[in-house]
């Protein structure tokens, strides 16, 4: 199953980076959330799926390492927050600068 996760991770990163590099700020946000998803998948990929035991669990069959999955939960919550903030910034840029085109935004500076 790990090859499937690896391929998904690679595709997510590729699509995410492609979108982040676009001029449209909305696509930047979309690309960013794809990258966040990819990062979460990467955390899962880095964990061992077999042969470890959760702390304080004495008996029963050995299973996956729970720590990375907890990290993913936290990372999802943080990712949700920062994506919302990024959307708010893009919205403010759309309202204030009347554009969400990143090239135009940096041209406005001069």
């Amino acid at each position: 199953m790990s090859w499937l996760l690896c391929t998904t991770f690679a595709v997510l990163v590729a699509v995410g980076i492609f979108h982040v590099l676009q001029r449209d700020a909305i696509r930047l946000v979309l690309g960013f959330s794809l990258l966040l998803g990819a990062a979460n998948l990467f955390v899962l990929l880095c964990s061992s799926f077999f042969g470890t035991r959760a702390p304080y669990v004495e008996s029963g069959p050995a299973g996956g390492d729970p720590v990375p999955q907890v990290l993913i939960l936290t990372a999802i919550a943080i990712g949700f927050g920062v994506t919302a903030l990024l959307v708010a910034l893009v919205l403010a840029s759309g309202q204030q600068l009347r554009t969400v085109d990143l090239d135009e935004i940096s041209r406005l500076e001069r």
């Binding site: 990024l86 403010a92 406005l108």
Partner: peptide, 14 residues
Amino acid sequence: GEPPHVEAALKYAT
């Protein structure tokens, strides 16, 4: 919330 502030924050945040 003025244009330069939004622009700087967007760059920094991204």
